[in-house]
Amino acid sequence: MRLRGTWSRVARSLLAPSTSDCLICGKKSRASSELTGVCKSCQASIPWIRHPRCPKCGRHVGCPDCSRGSDPVPIICNRSAVAYTSGMREILGQYKYRGNERLGPLLGLMLDQAYTILQSERGQTPRDGGSKQRHQFIPAFKNKRTRLWQADLLVPVPVSDSRLAERGFNQAERLADVLSRRRGVPQLPLLVRTHHTGKQSFKTRAERLADMKHAFAVNPDPAAGSQFACWLELSGQERGGRPLQIIIVDDIYTTGSTIRACAETIALWAAGFGCTLEIYSLTWARS
């Protein structure tokens, strides 16, 4: 009888939903099947942007910025995983400013949802079958087989040296790392930040746009340039290949001034190689 009771308890424990300490609320709760390390309750409360209202910037509500803007925008579109609510602000604050680096993989996994949306919107295009080769900077369109749209390269938004020293990491680079591993798309640090622009959240839209002018430059490291040049040669651009699909990765999209400045720098540099680009951006949150 005692043995039978023991086996019954074992069976019940195996069949019972697993519980763990949630990365968001810290409580021991039933784990979500969609997000590793997050409880079902917190997962259900995440303000996902599944159907962007603005087709350009990916905003989930009405967007006066895109509707009133007359200047050409250097990206095709932005897509964000979540709306930047107070709850999401707290999560990002724990990660960026309070050293909770356990949240990094979770934020990257959430960003992957934005990639899924972008991918479904772009539809099917000619792609190669060699996803295992993409980490060697071999472009994703070597043959004509049709597959779901795939980016060719991820470019994280750089942080200043002072910010890097303060935090110890670049959050955009870490987000791109997760996305790169999940999607088989290489990332390359093509850009550097030329000067520290200060905290953007306290500035007006006009101040942010002014701040971002000349805030980025091409990475002077010869290794980055040679990798990109080699990658372009393999792409077949000199033979009239299709535009390279590049995604800029960052944590938050507010006015788009950071993304715009990065995209303009990348496009200008790539033009010197005689290649054409289609630039997109993915951000974890849209304010």
Rank of each mutant, 00 (worst) to 15 (best):
K96Q: 06
L153W: 07
S131W: 13
Q119V: 08
Q113E: 14
D161K: 05
I91R: 01
Q136P: 13
L107T: 09
G123I: 06
G93A: 07
E101G: 01
F137V: 01
A140K: 08
K142S: 13
T125E: 12
Q113Y: 13
L154C: 01
G104I: 10
K144N: 13
G123V: 06
G123C: 03
R145A: 09
N100G: 02
P139T: 06
I91S: 01
A165K: 12
E90I: 14
M88A: 08
Q136D: 14
S131T: 10
M110H: 07
P158H: 09
P105T: 05
L111G: 08
N100I: 14
P126Q: 11
T125P: 00
E90A: 15
S120D: 12
R147P: 00
E90W: 13
A165R: 13
R127E: 04
G168C: 04
P139K: 02
K142F: 06
K132Q: 14
R134T: 09
G108Y: 04
Q113C: 13
S120P: 02
V157T: 10
R145F: 15
L92D: 06
K96S: 05
E90K: 14
Q119H: 07
P126W: 12
G99L: 00
R127G: 03
R102Y: 07
S162K: 06
P158A: 08
R163I: 07
R89H: 10
D112L: 08
N100R: 15
Q150Y: 00
P105S: 00
K96G: 02
D161T: 13
G123N: 08
M88D: 03
Y95W: 15
D112G: 11
N143A: 10
K144P: 04
N100H: 12
D128G: 06
D128P: 01
P156S: 05
M110D: 08
E166H: 04
G130V: 13
P139Y: 02
T85F: 04
L107M: 10
D128N: 09
L106C: 10
R122I: 02
L109A: 15
Y115N: 08
G168A: 03
Y95S: 09
T85V: 09
E166N: 07
S160L: 01
L92W: 03
L118N: 09
A114F: 09
T85D: 07
T125G: 01
R122D: 05
L164A: 12
R102A: 10
R127C: 01
I138C: 09
R98C: 11
L92F: 12
R147I: 03
L92Y: 07
G87D: 08
K144E: 15
L107F: 12
R102C: 01
L148M: 11
Y115F: 11
D161W: 00
E166R: 06
S86E: 15
D112H: 11
T85H: 01
R147H: 15
A114G: 06
A114L: 04
V159C: 09
L153K: 03
F137S: 00
K144R: 15
T125I: 07
P126S: 12
P158K: 02
G108P: 02
D128R: 05
Q150M: 01
Y95P: 02
G104Q: 12
R98G: 06
S160M: 01
A151I: 04
L148T: 12
R127F: 00
G108R: 04
Q150C: 04
L148F: 10
F137D: 03
L107G: 00
